[in-house]
Amino acid sequence: MTTTPLRRRGAALTAAILSVSLVLTACGGGEDTAGAKPGDTAAETRTVTAGNGPIKVPAAPKRVVTIGNTDLPFIDMGGAPVGVSGAAPSEISLLPADQQETYKKATSVGGEVDLEKVAALKPDLILVQIPDAEFKKMEKQLTSIAPTVFWGLDTEWKALAEQLADAGNVKDSLTRQKAEYESKVATMKQTYAELIKTTKFVNLDRYSNSDPGTYVIGDIGCVEIAQDDIGFNFPKAPAGKDPLAYTSLPFEQLTKLSQYGVITYPADAEGKPTEVFAPVVDTNTWKALPLVTSGHALGVFCPGNNSYGAVLRYLDSLDKALATLPAKK
């Protein structure tokens, strides 16, 4: 049979795909064997339920690879993944020193996940939180490498923390963090009861891709903890509508902030405005705002809003900032 150049290229492509599949399958198969070796505990399994149904996972996984939004929450709960998909350097810089060390020790499998790298790490568990469509594309390959537990992006952070801790066998750490969090929330509710009842807050934000001369009223992220869990009165979009943070407001709108009692804005761990938000603080309009001149504009540090450790650091920063208010209670 003669083949046209197109057919020959098609045949070559098919062969290449088959070869890669075989390599991946071989790696996966090897891993399964290797997964049974490290210790007896790995041979014991339990079943956890997640976005991709009930999954049998090792009772005490030793080599965990985290992909997507599971990287930092797993490390936050004391996990030490052998592979991570990689967070932005700006996010990593916000982690406590010990967590940064853990992160650096892990091998990066790439934001665009390199399945060969994942297989080479011989994981006994893979924890994934990415968009459903992306997971569908690599589900077969991942599950052939190791038991894979998946959550969609719609999974609420507390539920994710519970299930992640369960699958990754870091429940003790989670229990401690949860207790500390609940205690902190209860204390703040009590300390700021009057503020919660009487004061209108507004949280301002700005993103690295914001248009010049614009900011947003931030109603997503850490502020949701202050609003929903503690009860501070921050503006929120009506049900069914896009979050307020999706609408960029021109700096000119800063003149309308007088209707609020307290402004919160993004700051670093030392309380200085973040680099992205600095253009707002630099305007004369901001400097002349009565809320600013009277000390009612508070910089608050938000290192993340999808794990208890990060949220606790946010609450500590909010607490510290609120304590500086002239009439705080």
Partner: peptide, 10 residues
């Protein structure tokens, strides 16, 4: 005045 800043600055 804040509104005046908005005119002059923006």
């Amino acid at each position: 005045d804040i509104d005046q800043f908005a005119i002059r600055d923006f």
